[in-house]
């Protein structure tokens, strides 16, 4: 039924060689690269043009008061969630919906853990210590970049919860289509992981 409305949801499109959902997701991710790229570009420009001393000087590693331990733990959480995400897709490929949904649930739980670490162990303590968005250019960028990344994590959780719940009805009528949608969700999720892989050393480790 859905294949009549949306063509090439399962079979590859003759021009792109990919089913349309996957090509669409890659186009979306290309736009996301430019979005995050603009922020990284701003970060480089502001860091290089900051005065070498004074109140507006770029904070050193110690002056940032950011815990690499929490961020490192979060990196581990995201890496594990990427593995559980691909395991969800593999389970569906192996015709096992229950296992696929379980792995999706674990991925959503790990994503929630990432957000909990970020909010309760980083944002709230920093805010109370006075490291707000207006504290310095660095903290303005820190909250903007990690906040934008956090919004993407929330978006990922919502999509996963949808596919664990009401979205999984599609499995009954068209399991391959459902599996492909999970693969597209995975592409998005791995991109979120990839952005964090760059954010972690940039904000927490580099001096």
């Amino acid at each position: 039924m859905s294949a009549d409305v949306l063509p090439y949801t399962v079979k590859p499109h003759p021009i792109t060689g990919l089913y349309s959902g996957k090509f669409g997701m890659w186009l979306f991710l290309a736009s996301e690269v430019m979005l995050f790229g603009a922020f990284f570009s701003s970060y480089i420009l502001l860091k290089f043009s900051a005065p070498s001393e004074g109140a507006a000087a770029w904070p050193t590693h110690d002056e940032r008061h950011l815990s690499w331990v929490v961020a490192g733990a979060n990196t581990l959480v995201l890496i594990i969630s990427s593995v559980t995400m691909v395991m969800a897709w593999l389970s569906l490929k192996g015709n096992n919906l229950a296992k696929g949904r379980l792995f999706l649930g674990v991925t959503a739980a790990l994503a929630s853990l990432f957000l909990a670490f970020k909010i309760f162990l980083e944002y709230i303590p920093h805010w109370h210590e006075g490291y707000t968005t207006s504290h310095s250019v660095f903290f303005g960028l820190y909250y903007t970049m990690t906040g934008l990344h956090g919004l993407h994590v929330i978006g990922g959780i919502l999509v996963m919860v949808y596919f664990i719940g009401p979205g999984s009805k599609l499995w009954r009528s068209d399991p391959e289509y459902y599996t492909n949608r999970i693969e597209c969700t995975g592409l998005y999720w791995h991109f979120v992981d990839l952005v964090w892989i760059v954010l972690f050393p940039t904000l927490y480790l580099m001096n």
Binding site: I15, T16, G17, L18, F23, S82, E183, G186, H190, D193
Partner: peptide, 16 residues
């Protein structure tokens, strides 16, 4: 991540 988790290693689409 891109090659293995995002399956680029197994993609052959020229357009992609």
């Amino acid at each position: 991540v891109a090659a293995i988790f995002m399956h680029l290693k197994w993609e052959s689409s020229r357009q992609l």
